[in-house]
Design a protein around this nucleic acid. Structure first.
Length: 224
DNA sequence: GCATTAACACGTA
DNA sequence: TACGTGTTAATGC
C-alpha cells in the first residue's frame, strides 16, 4: 500500500485514474529502496511487478558475455517500466541498476492485470508509452552511426526529459556529470567536455549537480 | 590520435 | 568534510 498523495506527486498516469481505480492501484503498490550500485533485476529474472521511480536514478541496460555494457535508457523520477515483460509473461531482457540510492514503487501482477482489464485511463497511458518508446528506438537505430560523445549525451538527456514518458519532469533534473557519463557510456571527463559543448550550443545550462533543459528538440535531433 | 583512467586542485554545502 | 567539477599526465587501443 502506498499513500495516494505520494503516488500522485510523482506519477502522472495516476492523475488520470478515477478515484476507485486510483485506490485499487495504491493498494497493489509497495515501496522499496535500492542502494547505489545494487541491481533491481538481472537479465533472465522473472520480476513479477511493474515498477516506477519515486526518487533517485536507475539505468536500464544489458551486459554481454564478454563484459561490454550498453545503456538502453536512464530512468529518472516519474518513469515506469516493465509492462512489456509483465504483459508477455517473459523474463526480463535487460538489467536494472541504481546509479544512486533510489526509491521505487512496485505494483503486483494482479493489480496490474486488473487495471489492464478494467481501466480505460490506464490503457491509454500504456499505449502512449509503448508508442513513444517505439519511436525512440526507431530513432536510435536510424542514427546508429552517430556515436560521438556529445551526440550520445544529447540523446540521453533528451530521453530523461521526454514529455510523453515523463510529463512531470519539468525543465531541470538533478544529475551529476558523472551519472550522465554512466548513462551515455563515456568517462566523466568526456561527459564534462561534451556537456560544456552542448551548453555552448545553447541546448542546456549546467549547474553543479543539475542540468537545465533549454532546447529539447535541439537535443533530440542533435547531429541530424 | 583518440578516449580512458588516475591523480590533484578548487569551490561549495 | 564530502561532493561535484575542471584540469593535467600517463596509458591503452
Amino acid at each position: 500500500m502506498i499513500a495516494p498523495e505520494k503516488l500522485l506527486s510523482t506519477t502522472h498516469w495516476a492523475r488520470d485514474l478515477p478515484a476507485d481505480e486510483l485506490e485499487r492501484a495504491c493498494k497493489g503498490l509497495a515501496e522499496r529502496n535500492i542502494a547505489q550500485g545494487a541491481y533491481l533485476c538481472h537479465r533472465g529474472d522473472r520480476l513479477d511487478s511493474w515498477t516506477g521511480v519515486l526518487s533517485g536514478l536507475l539505468k536500464l541496460g544489458s551486459t554481454s558475455r564478454s563484459g561490454k555494457s550498453v545503456t538502453f535508457a536512464g530512468l529518472p523520477e516519474g518513469m515506469w517500466f516493465g509492462e512489456g515483460s509483465l504483459i508477455k509473461g517473459e523474463p526480463r531482457r535487460y538489467e536494472v541498476v541504481a546509479l544512486r540510492d533510489t526509491r521505487v514503487a512496485m505494483m503486483n501482477r494482479q493489480t496490474f492485470n486488473w487495471l489492464f482489464d478494467n481501466s480505460v485511463a490506464f490503457n491509454r497511458f500504456l499505449v502512449r508509452q509503448f508508442n513513444e518508446r517505439l519511436g525512440q528506438f526507431i530513432a536510435l537505430v536510424e542514427h546508429d552511426r552517430m556515436l560521438d560523445a556529445p551526440g550520445r549525451l544529447a540523446r540521453n538527456i533528451a530521453w530523461l526529459f521526454n514529455p510523453v514518458l515523463n510529463p512531470l519532469a519539468g525543465d531541470n533534473i538533478e544529475i551529476s556529470q558523472e551519472e550522465i557519463g554512466l548513462l551515455a557510456g563515456v568517462s566523466r571527463q568526456a561527459a564534462n567536455r561534451g556537456l560544456r559543448q552542448l551548453e555552448e550550443e545553447g541546448l542546456i545550462a549546467l549547474e553543479p549537480g543539475l542540468v537545465r533543459l533549454l532546447d529539447l528538440d535541439g537535443l533530440r535531433l542533435y547531429g541530424e
